[in-house]
Design a protein around this nucleic acid. Structure first.
Lengths: 125, 125
DNA sequence: TATTTTGTTATAGAAAGTATAGAACAGTTT
DNA sequence: AAACTGTTCTATACTTTCTATAACAAAATA
């Protein structure tokens, strides 16, 4: 799985890593049960600090996407039915960007098209 | 227009303000041509610092949502056709949250329903 | 016209977040 | 037994967020 970190980006490195791991899972490059690299190995590979990778892993664990087994490693979780609190979190995260799009003149139809297009893009590319 | 700021939130105050102003416009409480309160008046009203409101206004201006006239005030812009770079920005903003939803088991149909529901909610509530 | 109000700019400080580095610990894996 | 693991700790540097105060010049208002 290929990860690209942009040091100059305004987006924190640990967030960039979190997002790209999530996309890797969404795409199918990473599956439930797969182990993620150790924080040390991954950090060395990416050229960043161990603690930065560690922070990303804990962010992913907080989201319910991976499970961290102390002194062992991180494994991608199995997802069954989504609970209400998680659904609400996703809704709260999306809301400001949906509102912004509406204000800037993107109507419901175009917005749904955009989301459909994004889903396809994430699953393939 | 009613604004609620949560000091304890992890979301910066200026971002909370930006998002709520955007929702006010999306809902129709604020229209193109309307003037926003002065940074001083708004800050006093919200109990925050003048520079915090100022930062929010400049964020809104960067998004193309308002226009700031130096020494005069801030006015809500008129929106015609959306340009490609703005559309790309919105797409980039949405992408990680769409990916996260997919990973957590929200399928395309449920995701489109969620977006539809959010649009209705933003426009009314 | 004189006063008030406006956004802007500057300085300053406190607190939190981001990222790095090095080291040590104890449990897991090989 | 040795290597590897996530965890924890200390430390430093930089950026971001938020507040506070002050001054400036242009716009709006009385």
């Amino acid at each position: 799985m290929l990860i690209r970190i942009e040091t100059e980006s305004e987006i924190p490195i640990y967030t960039q890593l979190t997002n790209q791991i999530i996309e890797g899972i969404a795409k199918g490059s990473l599956k439930s049960g797969d182990a993620l690299p150790s924080v040390r190995a991954f950090a060395a590979d990416l050229g960043v600090n161990m603690h930065t990778v560690n922070k990303s892993y804990h962010e992913l664990e907080k989201k319910g996407i991976i499970q961290i087994v102390p002194k062992s490693g991180a494994v991608i979780s199995h997802y069954d039915s989504i609970d209400d609190s998680t659904m609400n979190r996703i809704s709260d995260q999306l809301r400001p960007y949906i509102a912004e799009a509406l204000v800037l003149g993107v109507d419901k139809e175009k917005l749904l098209e955009l989301v459909s297009s994004l889903i396809s893009d994430i699953k393939t590319k």
